[in-house]
Amino acid sequence: MSLFFQSLLGATEGAVAQSILWSIMTLGVYITFKVLDFPDLTVDGSFATGGAVSAVLVTQGVDPLLSLLIALLAGMACGYVTGFLHTRLEIPGILAGILTMIALYSVNIRIMGQSNTSLLGVSTIFTVLSGMFAGMSMNLLTILVGSVFAAAVILLLYWFFGTEIGCAVRATCNNEYMVRALGVNTNYTKILGLVLSNGLVALSGALVAQNQGYGDVQMGTGTIMVGLASVIIGEVLMGSRFSFAYKLISAVVGSVIYRVIIAIVLQMGLQSTDLKLLTAAMVAVALAIPVVRKRMLKKAPEEEQEDAE
């Protein structure tokens, strides 16, 4: 029993450490899923694009920090493509995301010249930092780097969505008609949301690639599910309050809890190949809960009425 907990603790520490890098992806998914009300499947591709761009650049001797910035820009370009397909060419949102995601598979292999790029013996932000702080464990270092990035992204998003342009983006999903009647090009605000979101997703992919020591064309598969599950777990655990900053923090906490849950079920003997099923089931249940609850609430007064008649 104690052995179980010991190995769980070991597994969890690693999981928590990486989950903070993944939480930046969750913040990106939060923007599309919650703010824009647009389930954006581009992220499966753009996460790997971030990893691929950063991995290739770092192996070519580009500064690891600079490579993160370029990965961010590459992700933004992916978001732009989906936004263009959706708004200008009027392709339904889910399909627009799938199209970009599929196309990015080929693009990502082109970027790397093969299906993966190893960072063995190449200096990444993590190897550089572990050289600077020799006594620190890699997990702790990962947590520190991840926390700094997550905090910076939360501050940036909080600021952005409070600005005039940010308000217009938030209002677009709430009431497009009004936003247009108030003089805002809603194509522009939708594209902007997708650009911002996929930029963050790619940044997250770049950080994960540098952390795990390789970029891989498959590394983004299922990202959207992980992101949705994390957003939903965060919301369920932390409640949905009015404050925007609080909701962003919930998304980060959700990412961490998601990884802890995964670590626990793996420890309990589930195969890692079962995880996709588990994640999909989690998202399905979480999405179903409000619907079922509403149906039950609606049923109750109806029955009362029948009684009264």
């Binding site: 952005f160 005039e164 805002v184």
Partner: peptide, 13 residues
Amino acid sequence: MAYRRGRRRSLRW
């Protein structure tokens, strides 16, 4: 948002 109708929206608060 209505107060800014017809004006260029910026990154000001």
